[in-house]
Nucleic acid binder design. Structure first.
Lengths: 252, 252
DNA sequence: CGACTCATTGAGCGAAGTCAACGTCCGTGG
DNA sequence: CCACGGACGTTGACTTCGCTCAATGAGTCG
């Protein structure tokens, strides 16, 4: 945001949340090139079926990765907020990227896979950090599967809101009591495997319960404990404490 | 299986399906230690909430990774067949393993993370292959999310059967017209976000349509095209053509 | 045989979907 | 300035897919 903080610092911070990197690695990451692009809402950054050729760092806005079903309905498989590097996994599996869309107007930085591969080959710690980042994404994906497969609509929505609250807080984009979520109810439905109509009704219910509120696009969580209980939410899957990482790095 | 083919060869074959490895890497993988264990059906190899300390190579049988909901219902988030290395992702994220259970009687080999980390630090190509394996798992996870989130029960079941058919065929454990699936209808339900009762009914419907059949635990796919159409199945997400991998290795 | 697991089938219910209408906000252009 | 259109949110009436509860078969193992 401020001129003294290059956008790539966002991504470095994200990696440092989970992995240990030395000065050389940090510097190499910060010197990554990449063109900053403004995209409008609803733009397909990577259209369905297309092979990924670059990763996308979210500087501002909300992005969604999604899959499509034959009848045109879609399922969002990941939500990406500022600091997330989208399609990092496709660095090793370019065929399996999935589509990527801006859900709100957004600022992203295109980072070419060639540059990332160079970093990965040069710095084993960066390779490990990228791998860990992908594993963390997969962990979220697992939770989403449990959420959609085995919880009813109220719990689903509560769980998603809790997850986003924690992630926004971690990314220093708000806290778990208030954060700006630039997604329409259609998007929320696509993320939860529900229709927008039902999202609307269910949101009303948990609002009437006094758990949450909304002011334009800002989500207010009035009763964190209640919402977490309703969503059966345990934030462990989002975190990776540094002592574990340290252990992973020093053992062997 | 045969004495001349060490079990670890199964895993090497799996990696070679997607990644390029040299003789040194192959040899290092084959010399991995690990104790072979027989486990009975329904045994929790890694109980819920426990931190992973080793990976598990499936030699024979069927394993499931799953998450639990507060009321005791569960969602299988991955099915692992012979040749799969379970919990490889937790090598970098030990906290995020999820529970692991044998769905049938199974033979597995416990591979300590220390040994795997040593390999990863010594051979960058192995690190990349492991990372790619995790990304491929995540790709399957994405498809499952789409499947559960946006398809009705018939399509869900059809899609899962198609996926398993292709995976068993790839693993040379049968072909896409006939393969042995050691999962009960309860397990299938847990994988699809359905109840066992409904799985039973839906299986009857697609059987009556002439798409599939079953003899004890062997699934027979009578009409591949029909089943793939019903399940909206595109096997691209399971494959990784070698020329792509080669590109990934040579560029940069 | 008895105990157990798994598959099968029926009856009734309820959560979520579908279809449709209407309201609100906001940007845009005459 | 206001009229118009479009995107999004809200609500109601009705339908339906999948769940719950329950009973019964079928196969297997000690």
């Amino acid at each position: 945001m401020s001129p003294s903080r290059p956008p790539m610092q966002l991504f470095v911070d994200r990696l440092l949340d989970r992995s240990m990197l030395g000065a050389a690695e940090t510097e190499a990451l910060l010197s990554l090139g990449g063109r900053e692009v403004q995209v409008r809402a609803q733009l397909d950054i990577v259209p369905p079926g297309e092979e990924a050729t670059s990763a996308w760092l979210v500087v501002d806005g909300l992005l969604g990765r999604f899959g499509q079903v034959i009848d045109g309905r879609r399922q969002i498989t990941a939500l990406h907020i500022a600091g997330d590097m989208c399609n990092l996994h496709a660095l090793v599996t370019p065929r399996m990227s999935g589509a990527l869309q801006a859900l709100s107007a957004a600022t992203v930085i295109r980072v070419d896979y060639r540059d990332l591969r160079h970093l990965v080959r040069t710095f084993p710690l960066i390779a490990e950090a990228f791998w860990r980042d992908c594993a963390a994404q997969a962990s979220i994906l697992s939770q989403w599967l449990v959420n959609i497969g085995r919880r009813d609509a109220q719990s689903r929505l509560a769980h998603l809101l809790c997850e986003l609250a924690v992630r926004f807080e971690q990314a220093r984009l708000g806290n778990r009591r208030a954060f700006r979520l630039d997604a329409s109810q259609v998007h929320i439905g696509d993320a939860l495997g529900l229709t927008a109509v039902h999202v609307n009704r269910v949101f009303r219910v948990i609002r009437d319960k006094g758990l949450v509120g909304a002011e334009s696009r800002t989500i207010l969580i009035h009763d964190w404990a209640g919402l977490a209980a309703l969503g059966d939410f345990d934030e462990a899957y989002l975190h990776m404490k540094s002592h574990i990482v340290a252990d992973a790095l020093t053992s062997a």
